[in-house]
Structure formats: C-alpha cells, structure tokens
Amino acid sequence: MEDNDLKWKTLSSEYLFKDQWLTARKDRCERKDGKIIDPYYVMEYPEWVTAVAITEENKVLLVKQYRHALGEVSIEIPGGCVDDTDDNFEDAIRRELLEETGFAFASVHSLGRISANPSTNSNLMHMFVAIGGKKIQEQDLDPNEEIEILELTFDELIQLVEEKRIIQAMHVTTIMYALMYLDKIEFKR
C-alpha cells in the first residue's frame, strides 16, 4: 500500500478555540475506502525547537523551571516556540538559547524532528546540538519565565537521564540523539 492510500481527505474544519499558543479544531475526514471520521480533534501549536547546548568548557547547559500543568519543577534542555521573526529553525534555537541562557554558540547542528503526539498535535519539535557556547549576555526571559541555569558534565547529564529525573519526553529524545551524535553513547541491540 502506498503512503497516499493511507492519507485522509479533510472535508471540513471548524475552529473551536484560537489563541497565541494553542488552537483546537474539529475536522470531518474521509478515508480512501469512503469511511467518514467525524469528529477528529486536532491541537495546533507553533513549531518547537530545543537543543543540547555545550559550552566552550564542555559543560552541558540545562534549565530548571516550574511547569504549572504538572505542578512540578522540571529539569530540561533549553528551547521553545519558533517565532514569526525567526527566518528558520536554526535561527529560532539560537534565539531561544541566547534568551534562556545568555550563551551564543559557534555551531549548531540539526538532529532531525520529532512529534509529541502525531495523532492529535499538528506541530513538530526540531532538535539540535549547539557547540562552543560562550556567555555573552544575561538572560532575556519572557515575563512568565523564571529559569535557573545548570552547567553539568556529560556524566552528570547521563546520570540524570538514567535516574529518570528529566521527565520531558521530547527533551529526553533530543538528549539521546545528541549523545549518539557526539559519540557519548552507543545504541546497543
């Protein structure tokens, strides 16, 4: 079966809620075999970027912040939403890194893209590894952000992953891809 044989046709869409960070819509769809799927709910979010950020001193930058939906303080890697002012995903992650950490990076390498949940979310997370970070300014946080910066060794980062202390699933995925990219871990079968 070809991929196009699996795709649905959207017959109609109705927006139920629209806001800056979240849009919810209800679609009416038709499969290739004629079956109608109604309703099918889709959450639209902006594209996201995140990076494993490594300083000139070979330290990994992590961020610690309160996450209200869980009611917990979370250890994460830097990242955020792609803005309309960003020309591309690399520009977006460079901006996010500078805002959240105050560091600029000599090079940024794409690790690909992932989806939080392709059955309900329309956006993607674009993953990067940033190398050669140097602090050039203080944090420039959004009004609702309060972020503590952590500088860890690779062994400390791997320990946090092994202890399951980093709970943001997409960030763990980015960390694993970055560690493989950097030859810090090997995928074993």
Rank of each mutant, 00 (worst) to 15 (best):
D19H: 11
F128V: 00
I166C: 13
M176N: 11
W21V: 10
T153N: 05
V108K: 00
I36P: 06
L70W: 15
I167S: 12
L150E: 11
A24W: 06
I158M: 06
S107Y: 08
Y15C: 12
K9D: 12
K18Y: 12
N123R: 13
E99H: 09
S13C: 11
D5G: 05
V49L: 15
Y15I: 13
A53W: 12
L111T: 06
E162V: 11
V172S: 11
A104N: 13
G102W: 03
P118Q: 13
A106S: 14
E14R: 12
A104H: 10
M176T: 14
E47T: 01
N123E: 08
Y66T: 06
N88K: 02
L157M: 07
A51K: 13
S12E: 07
G71C: 02
I54C: 06
I75T: 05
I131C: 05
T85I: 04
S115N: 12
S74Q: 07
G71V: 02
V60D: 07
R95T: 01
Y181I: 06
E56D: 09
Q168H: 07
D27T: 06
I175G: 15
K188L: 14
K35Q: 07
D91C: 07
L62P: 02
L97I: 00
L124S: 03
P46D: 05
N123K: 13
K64T: 00
V82W: 00
R94G: 03
E76V: 08
F187R: 06
R31Q: 08
Q159F: 05
A104T: 13
I158Y: 01
Y40C: 13
W48Q: 15
N58Y: 07
E151S: 07
L70D: 15
A178G: 04
D27P: 13
W8C: 10
K26D: 10
S122N: 08
